[in-house]
Amino acid sequence: MSLIEVTGLVKTFERRQAPWGRPRLIRAVDRVSFAIGEGETLGLVGESGSGKTTTVRCLLRLIEPTAGSFLFRGEQVFGLPASRMRALRRDLQMIFQDPDSSLNPRMTAGGIVEEGLVIHGIGSPADRRARVRELFEWVGLDAGMAGRLPHELSGGQRQRVGIARALALAPAVLVADEPVSALDVSIQAQVVNVLMDLQQRLGLTLLLVAHDLRLVRHLCSRIAVMYRGRIVETGRAGAVFHAPAHPYTRALISAMPDPDPGSQPPRIRYDAAGFDPEAELGEVAPGHWAATSAARQ
């Protein structure tokens, strides 16, 4: 049994062109299924609007899914009462994309990181302060910044406070939605190292949502590529990266700018008109699946 098993996840939104208009149903997430084993790292890649963020928000029930099943340690998460969900969230922690809106502007950085420990009644005040110092060090923040308010920190420092907060309760699963895209390149690498250290030290299971294929390739053992609400390709990171089977994955990989002179692959373009939302995932190589017409045959 996998730690995380998602089956047939669907999330539809109603959208009206005008308040009096007829609602149109938009399938942001369309029959998405994947599993993550204990200590495994899965990267969910895709461009804006692909449904990757909506997928993880459904898993944490920050928004309610329309259909599907999510088993966490064999327990059905969708439909759990709020009280049980609160307890579960200790094990399922999230790092958000936008540090500006996800931190309480009136709490100090130290208070934000400590809050989860207080709520769950963990440790004495002295233990908690020591824990906060340790977390600050992990994410590369000076201990002296614990007394600062979010607006007194840089965007990068704020994001690191968000990461420290997510780690405070030593969760089993860390869901990270674009955790480094707001950071400077030299700082990104520090945070990537922190995530790798934690993953190894704590045996953390990581679900990483990112548009940066290279980041996902670096951190994750497996990749799932999303396009228009569907997973169009999934497999071991190296296989998806070096032998992409879906035309969209090929286009995405060829679009990534490569700083290594001369190693930029030629552009491959993907025609959205050729996308078949009904194409099922088929195994193109052992453990490597793609929703291509060829794979269906």
Binding site: V185, S186, Q188, A189, V192, N193, M196, D197, D212, L213, R214, L215, R217, H218, L219, A237, G238, P259
Partner: peptide, 10 residues
């Protein structure tokens, strides 16, 4: 510091 050159390494 760019990721992806040697996956899985610091």
């Amino acid at each position: 510091s760019l990721p992806g050159r040697v996956p899985g390494t610091r």
